[in-house]
Nucleic acid binder design. Structure first.
Lengths: 111, 111
DNA sequence: TCCTTATATACTCCATGGCGCATATACGTG
DNA sequence: CACGTATATGCGCCATGGAGTATATAAGGA
Protein backbone atom coordinates (compact mmCIF):
# COMPACT_ATOMS: atom_id res chain seq x y z
CA UNK A 1 0.00 0.00 0.00
CA UNK A 2 2.71 2.44 1.01
CA UNK A 3 4.87 1.03 -1.73
CA UNK A 4 2.22 2.00 -4.22
CA UNK A 5 2.18 5.52 -2.84
CA UNK A 6 5.94 5.75 -2.83
CA UNK A 7 5.93 6.46 -6.55
CA UNK A 8 5.50 10.18 -7.34
CA UNK A 9 3.73 9.63 -10.64
CA UNK A 10 1.18 7.43 -8.97
CA UNK A 11 0.50 10.02 -6.31
CA UNK A 12 0.08 12.54 -9.09
CA UNK A 13 -2.46 10.31 -10.79
CA UNK A 14 -4.40 9.88 -7.58
CA UNK A 15 -4.37 13.61 -6.95
CA UNK A 16 -5.63 14.15 -10.44
CA UNK A 17 -8.45 11.66 -10.03
CA UNK A 18 -9.62 13.15 -6.77
CA UNK A 19 -11.56 15.84 -8.59
CA UNK A 20 -13.14 13.58 -11.19
CA UNK A 21 -12.66 10.46 -13.23
CA UNK A 22 -10.38 10.63 -16.28
CA UNK A 23 -9.47 8.59 -19.30
CA UNK A 24 -5.94 7.32 -19.77
CA UNK A 25 -5.37 9.88 -22.50
CA UNK A 26 -6.42 12.73 -20.28
CA UNK A 27 -4.06 11.63 -17.56
CA UNK A 28 -1.33 11.23 -20.13
CA UNK A 29 -1.80 14.79 -21.37
CA UNK A 30 -2.32 16.49 -18.04
CA UNK A 31 0.64 14.85 -16.36
CA UNK A 32 2.86 14.89 -19.47
CA UNK A 33 3.90 11.32 -19.14
CA UNK A 34 4.18 8.68 -21.86
CA UNK A 35 1.15 6.50 -22.32
CA UNK A 36 2.76 3.17 -21.40
CA UNK A 37 3.96 4.72 -18.18
CA UNK A 38 0.46 5.87 -17.35
CA UNK A 39 -1.01 2.47 -18.14
CA UNK A 40 1.56 0.68 -16.03
CA UNK A 41 0.99 2.89 -13.04
CA UNK A 42 -2.75 2.58 -13.46
CA UNK A 43 -2.35 -1.14 -13.44
CA UNK A 44 -0.50 -1.02 -10.16
CA UNK A 45 -3.07 1.34 -8.70
CA UNK A 46 -5.89 -0.84 -9.94
CA UNK A 47 -4.44 -4.06 -8.56
CA UNK A 48 -3.90 -2.38 -5.22
CA UNK A 49 -7.51 -1.18 -5.21
CA UNK A 50 -6.75 2.53 -5.38
CA UNK A 51 -8.67 2.98 -8.61
CA UNK A 52 -11.18 1.18 -10.74
CA UNK A 53 -12.08 1.58 -14.38
CA UNK A 54 -15.08 1.34 -16.60
CA UNK A 55 -15.14 1.00 -20.35
CA UNK A 56 -16.42 3.87 -22.44
CA UNK A 57 -16.02 2.90 -26.11
CA UNK A 58 -12.27 2.48 -26.61
CA UNK A 59 -11.57 4.60 -23.58
CA UNK A 60 -11.14 3.47 -20.06
CA UNK A 61 -12.38 5.83 -17.42
CA UNK A 62 -10.50 5.59 -14.17
CA UNK A 63 -11.78 6.77 -10.85
CA UNK A 64 -10.67 6.63 -7.23
CA UNK A 65 -11.63 3.99 -4.77
CA UNK A 66 -11.44 5.18 -1.18
CA UNK A 67 -10.54 2.03 0.72
CA UNK A 68 -6.74 1.88 0.51
CA UNK A 69 -6.32 5.53 1.34
CA UNK A 70 -8.67 5.07 4.22
CA UNK A 71 -6.37 2.36 5.46
CA UNK A 72 -3.48 4.77 5.29
CA UNK A 73 -5.58 7.19 7.23
CA UNK A 74 -6.26 4.51 9.81
CA UNK A 75 -2.59 3.67 10.09
CA UNK A 76 -1.94 7.29 10.87
CA UNK A 77 -4.40 7.38 13.76
CA UNK A 78 -2.04 6.45 16.60
CA UNK A 79 0.45 9.02 15.43
CA UNK A 80 -2.22 11.68 15.37
CA UNK A 81 -2.86 10.89 19.00
CA UNK A 82 0.86 11.13 19.57
CA UNK A 83 1.33 14.58 18.17
CA UNK A 84 -1.74 16.05 19.75
CA UNK A 85 -0.60 14.61 23.06
CA UNK A 86 2.67 16.41 22.50
CA UNK A 87 1.39 19.89 22.23
CA UNK A 88 1.51 19.78 26.02
CA UNK A 89 4.78 17.92 25.91
CA UNK A 90 6.27 20.84 24.05
CA UNK A 91 5.26 23.11 26.86
CA UNK A 92 6.73 20.70 29.36
CA UNK A 93 9.87 20.63 27.29
CA UNK A 94 10.20 24.38 27.24
CA UNK A 95 9.59 24.27 30.94
CA UNK A 96 12.39 21.77 31.34
CA UNK A 97 14.72 24.06 29.43
CA UNK A 98 14.27 26.59 32.16
CA UNK A 99 17.49 25.54 33.84
CA UNK A 100 17.57 28.67 35.96
CA UNK A 101 15.62 26.85 38.68
CA UNK A 102 17.21 23.38 38.71
CA UNK A 103 14.97 21.82 41.33
CA UNK A 104 14.87 18.02 41.38
CA UNK A 105 12.59 16.89 38.59
CA UNK A 106 9.61 15.06 40.13
CA UNK A 107 7.79 14.07 36.94
CA UNK A 108 10.67 11.83 35.89
CA UNK A 109 10.07 10.03 32.62
CA UNK A 110 10.25 6.24 32.48
CA UNK A 111 12.20 4.51 29.70
CA UNK B 1 8.61 10.75 2.61
CA UNK B 2 6.38 8.03 1.25
CA UNK B 3 9.46 6.17 0.18
CA UNK B 4 10.60 6.14 3.77
CA UNK B 5 7.25 4.73 4.85
CA UNK B 6 7.28 2.16 2.09
CA UNK B 7 9.63 -0.03 4.11
CA UNK B 8 7.77 -2.32 6.55
CA UNK B 9 10.57 -2.42 9.13
CA UNK B 10 10.62 1.34 9.25
CA UNK B 11 6.89 1.51 9.80
CA UNK B 12 7.33 -1.04 12.57
CA UNK B 13 9.95 1.14 14.20
CA UNK B 14 7.71 4.17 14.02
CA UNK B 15 4.81 2.24 15.48
CA UNK B 16 7.05 1.10 18.27
CA UNK B 17 8.23 4.61 19.03
CA UNK B 18 4.74 6.03 19.17
CA UNK B 19 4.28 4.83 22.74
CA UNK B 20 7.65 5.97 24.05
CA UNK B 21 11.26 6.53 23.11
CA UNK B 22 13.56 3.52 22.84
CA UNK B 23 17.20 2.71 22.53
CA UNK B 24 18.54 0.95 19.46
CA UNK B 25 18.98 -2.23 21.47
CA UNK B 26 15.38 -2.18 22.62
CA UNK B 27 14.16 -1.80 19.08
CA UNK B 28 16.49 -4.56 17.97
CA UNK B 29 15.09 -6.96 20.56
CA UNK B 30 11.43 -6.05 20.27
CA UNK B 31 11.37 -6.20 16.50
CA UNK B 32 13.78 -9.14 16.23
CA UNK B 33 15.93 -7.56 13.59
CA UNK B 34 19.71 -7.46 13.38
CA UNK B 35 21.33 -4.41 14.87
CA UNK B 36 22.88 -3.03 11.66
CA UNK B 37 19.49 -3.21 10.03
CA UNK B 38 17.95 -1.22 12.84
CA UNK B 39 20.68 1.38 12.72
CA UNK B 40 20.40 1.78 8.99
CA UNK B 41 16.65 2.25 9.10
CA UNK B 42 17.01 4.67 11.96
CA UNK B 43 19.44 6.62 9.88
CA UNK B 44 16.94 6.90 7.06
CA UNK B 45 14.20 7.86 9.48
CA UNK B 46 16.41 10.43 11.15
CA UNK B 47 17.52 12.04 7.91
CA UNK B 48 13.92 12.26 6.79
CA UNK B 49 12.98 13.89 10.08
CA UNK B 50 10.73 11.12 11.33
CA UNK B 51 12.80 10.57 14.47
CA UNK B 52 15.48 12.27 16.49
CA UNK B 53 17.93 10.90 18.97
CA UNK B 54 19.64 11.94 22.13
CA UNK B 55 22.70 10.42 23.67
CA UNK B 56 22.36 8.53 26.93
CA UNK B 57 25.80 7.14 27.80
CA UNK B 58 26.61 4.70 25.00
CA UNK B 59 22.96 4.41 24.13
CA UNK B 60 21.03 6.47 21.70
CA UNK B 61 17.45 7.12 22.57
CA UNK B 62 15.23 7.59 19.59
CA UNK B 63 11.87 9.30 19.64
CA UNK B 64 9.30 10.36 17.09
CA UNK B 65 9.11 13.73 15.45
CA UNK B 66 5.63 14.58 14.26
CA UNK B 67 6.28 16.79 11.23
CA UNK B 68 6.71 14.28 8.37
CA UNK B 69 3.72 12.23 9.40
CA UNK B 70 1.73 15.41 9.68
CA UNK B 71 2.65 16.10 6.09
CA UNK B 72 1.36 12.70 5.12
CA UNK B 73 -1.78 13.56 6.99
CA UNK B 74 -2.02 16.81 5.08
CA UNK B 75 -1.53 15.04 1.75
CA UNK B 76 -4.42 12.84 2.64
CA UNK B 77 -6.79 15.74 3.25
CA UNK B 78 -8.24 16.11 -0.28
CA UNK B 79 -8.92 12.40 -0.40
CA UNK B 80 -10.71 12.54 2.89
CA UNK B 81 -12.99 15.13 1.40
CA UNK B 82 -13.42 12.84 -1.59
CA UNK B 83 -14.56 9.81 0.32
CA UNK B 84 -16.88 11.66 2.63
CA UNK B 85 -18.41 13.29 -0.42
CA UNK B 86 -18.94 9.82 -1.83
CA UNK B 87 -21.08 8.37 0.85
CA UNK B 88 -23.91 9.90 -1.15
CA UNK B 89 -22.29 8.83 -4.37
CA UNK B 90 -22.54 5.27 -3.21
CA UNK B 91 -26.24 5.68 -2.87
CA UNK B 92 -26.42 7.19 -6.32
CA UNK B 93 -24.38 4.29 -7.57
CA UNK B 94 -26.69 1.72 -6.10
CA UNK B 95 -29.51 3.68 -7.64
CA UNK B 96 -27.79 3.49 -11.01
CA UNK B 97 -27.46 -0.26 -10.65
CA UNK B 98 -31.20 -0.53 -10.79
CA UNK B 99 -31.09 -1.68 -14.40
CA UNK B 100 -34.61 -3.00 -14.24
CA UNK B 101 -35.82 0.28 -15.69
CA UNK B 102 -33.27 0.90 -18.46
CA UNK B 103 -34.54 4.27 -19.59
CA UNK B 104 -32.10 6.41 -21.55
CA UNK B 105 -29.67 7.80 -19.00
CA UNK B 106 -30.29 11.56 -18.83
CA UNK B 107 -27.66 12.47 -16.28
CA UNK B 108 -24.94 11.73 -18.82
CA UNK B 109 -21.50 12.12 -17.35
CA UNK B 110 -19.11 14.73 -18.76
CA UNK B 111 -15.51 13.74 -19.42
C1' DT C 1 -12.25 -4.14 -44.72
C1' DC C 2 -8.77 -0.75 -43.77
C1' DC C 3 -7.25 2.95 -41.04
C1' DT C 4 -7.08 5.59 -36.85
C1' DT C 5 -7.50 6.13 -32.04
C1' DA C 6 -7.06 4.35 -27.35
C1' DT C 7 -5.04 1.39 -24.18
C1' DA C 8 -2.38 -2.59 -22.57
C1' DT C 9 1.61 -5.53 -22.53
C1' DA C 10 6.40 -7.44 -23.38
C1' DC C 11 11.17 -6.85 -23.09
C1' DT C 12 15.57 -4.78 -22.06
C1' DC C 13 18.32 -1.72 -19.47
C1' DC C 14 19.64 0.45 -15.41
C1' DA C 15 19.40 2.55 -10.68
C1' DT C 16 17.95 1.97 -6.15
C1' DG C 17 17.64 -0.14 -1.86
C1' DG C 18 17.61 -3.87 1.57
C1' DC C 19 20.30 -7.52 3.71
C1' DG C 20 24.25 -9.97 5.79
C1' DC C 21 28.64 -9.69 7.34
C1' DA C 22 32.60 -7.54 9.00
C1' DT C 23 34.48 -3.72 11.09
C1' DA C 24 34.92 0.93 13.10
C1' DT C 25 33.82 4.13 16.78
C1' DA C 26 32.49 5.54 21.30
C1' DC C 27 31.64 5.08 26.00
C1' DG C 28 31.78 3.02 30.64
C1' DT C 29 34.09 -0.01 33.99
C1' DG C 30 37.36 -2.86 36.36
C1' DC D 1 44.45 0.81 29.51
C1' DA D 2 42.13 -3.30 28.32
C1' DC D 3 37.72 -5.15 27.73
C1' DG D 4 32.71 -5.44 27.06
C1' DT D 5 28.71 -3.14 25.45
C1' DA D 6 26.16 -0.14 22.28
C1' DT D 7 25.78 1.81 17.93
C1' DA D 8 27.24 3.19 13.29
C1' DT D 9 29.25 2.38 8.84
C1' DG D 10 31.33 0.10 4.65
C1' DC D 11 31.03 -3.34 1.19
C1' DG D 12 29.25 -6.84 -1.88
C1' DC D 13 25.23 -9.31 -3.41
C1' DC D 14 20.83 -9.60 -5.18
C1' DA D 15 15.85 -8.50 -6.11
C1' DT D 16 12.74 -5.06 -7.33
C1' DG D 17 10.84 -1.63 -10.09
C1' DG D 18 10.66 2.30 -13.27
C1' DA D 19 11.71 4.13 -18.05
C1' DG D 20 11.80 3.63 -22.96
C1' DT D 21 10.71 1.37 -27.12
C1' DA D 22 8.15 -1.63 -29.77
C1' DT D 23 4.21 -4.15 -30.38
C1' DA D 24 -0.39 -6.27 -29.40
C1' DT D 25 -5.34 -5.74 -28.79
C1' DA D 26 -9.68 -3.55 -29.32
C1' DA D 27 -13.12 -0.46 -30.89
C1' DG D 28 -15.03 3.13 -34.10
C1' DG D 29 -15.52 5.14 -38.62
C1' DA D 30 -14.93 5.83 -43.84
Amino acid sequence: MFEVLAEPNRRAILSLLVSSQRSVGEIERQLRMPQPTVSKHLRVLREAGFVESTVDAQRRLYRLKPEPLQEVDAWLAPFRRFWSAHVDALERHLDRMDQSTPTKRKTRRRT
